[in-house]
Simulated scan of single mutants.
Amino acid sequence: MSLTRSATPGPGLTAEARPTAPVRRRGRRFDPLPYLLVAPVAIFIVGLALIPAVFTVVQSFFKVNPLDPPTRFTGLGNFRALLADDAVIGSLGNTAFYVVVGVTLSTVLGIAMAVLLQRPFRGRSLVIAVLILPWALPGVVEGILWTGIFDPNAGLINSIVTQVGQIFGTGAGGTTLLLGQNRLLTISLIELVQVWQITPLSVLLILAALQLIPGELYEAAEIDGCTRWGAFRRITLPLARPGIAVCMVQAVIATLNVFDQPYVLNGAAATGSSITMQTYFISFQDLDFGQGYALSLMITVVTLIISLVVVRTIYRRVEL
């Protein structure tokens, strides 16, 4: 007679003493598909953005001029030479005007037009489609179009100035030269063209933010006796701040790097030149690539600083 041990624990066997089967954890398998899908974009960004950016930073501290070889380290020499250049200082003043006026006008017009387009109406899609056209056109094409408008012989603006001069007896002739003579007038007209280009994008960005505002908030405000202006100040503006911040950042980037409009409308004249134009002149006309790299680095740093200030000042997270 043989004795066998029962697999069922007896009454005296505690639960801790019961044998348990080992738990087998499944290892997480490595899936290369997401990385393969992202790899082309990552390589593209590194190849066309990060590598040139690093190269620009390094070369900005060197004297790089094919007419004055060899390439040699100058430290901050390129930056000191730029800050002592009258043409660069003048273009900095013009660019500051472009930024202040362009960002202000495009933001104010963007808010006003977005509020008008906030509520659906017949033909709104057509209005938005037409509104996008100035933004969709290249800057060179816009400059050529506005060159005809500012033409001193047959331009529309020139005709209006002439008629106003005749009405008020100022004696304005038929060949009033609007661009290139007076610095303030020149940069004002050039920035008018750029505002015409960048405002549509500002409208779309702010309009997208307005579409996220629930209509119930306006209904509740109306029931409480809030006027339209009060609803605009207390509901629309606070809840649209994320879109307004993005709108202002894109306007800052566009105005700080303006090149097409002043170059096409006013050529190389100092009355309307921008800091980006000076980068082109220094690099490809003077062939001083070291100073060109340094000026590009300065523009990039200033753009980042101003954009950061705008975001920290205007942007607020909205939770509905």
Rank of each mutant, 00 (worst) to 15 (best):
A84D: 15
Q291A: 15
A251T: 10
T4C: 09
N65S: 13
T107W: 00
L320P: 12
G173W: 06
A221E: 03
M113E: 08
Q163C: 08
G90Y: 07
L185H: 10
F44D: 00
G93H: 09
L3V: 15
W135A: 07
P70Q: 04
Y35W: 15
V38Y: 11
I167F: 15
R28F: 06
R28E: 10
E219I: 10
A21Q: 10
M113R: 08
I157Q: 01
I314Q: 02
I305F: 06
D224S: 13
L48E: 10
M298N: 04
A231E: 10
L50H: 07
T8Q: 15
G174A: 14
D85H: 00
L189A: 12
G225Q: 06
G173F: 04
P52I: 08
F79D: 01
I149K: 01
L145Y: 03
C247D: 12
I149E: 06
P138R: 07
R234L: 13
P120A: 11
M113C: 09
P66Q: 11
I157R: 08
S188V: 11
P34E: 02
G165H: 13
D260L: 01
G292S: 05
P134Q: 09
V302K: 06
A129M: 00
S2F: 06
T20I: 09
Q278K: 13
L109D: 06
T20W: 00
P152C: 14
P52T: 00
L239R: 12
S91M: 02
I149P: 04
G90K: 15
V252E: 07
A221Y: 00
V310K: 09
V258N: 05
R234C: 04
L36D: 06
A270Q: 12
T8P: 01
T95E: 02
P120Q: 07
I89Q: 14
I132P: 07
L76W: 04
I305Y: 00
V311C: 02
S188M: 15
C226P: 04
L212G: 14
L13T: 12
R29L: 11
P19I: 14
M1K: 14
F289C: 05
L13D: 11
T300I: 14
V101T: 00
D68L: 13
D86Q: 12
G171S: 00
Q250C: 13
I206N: 03
A81T: 10
R183P: 04
Y98Q: 03
L304K: 10
V127E: 01
C247T: 13
N257L: 11
P11M: 13
G215I: 03
F289L: 14
P138F: 00
G155W: 07
G93Q: 08
T300N: 04
G110R: 06
Y98V: 08
N153Y: 13
P9Y: 02
P238F: 03
I299F: 06
A81H: 13
A269C: 02
G169Y: 05
N158E: 13
T14S: 15
R26S: 12
V318M: 07
Q194I: 09
T8W: 03
L304G: 10
P52C: 07
L287K: 08
P32V: 05
V310D: 02
L201S: 09
P19Q: 12
L36Y: 05
N266E: 11
G75R: 04
T14A: 14
F44V: 05
R18L: 05
Q291P: 08
S125F: 10
R72L: 01
E219L: 11
P19K: 09
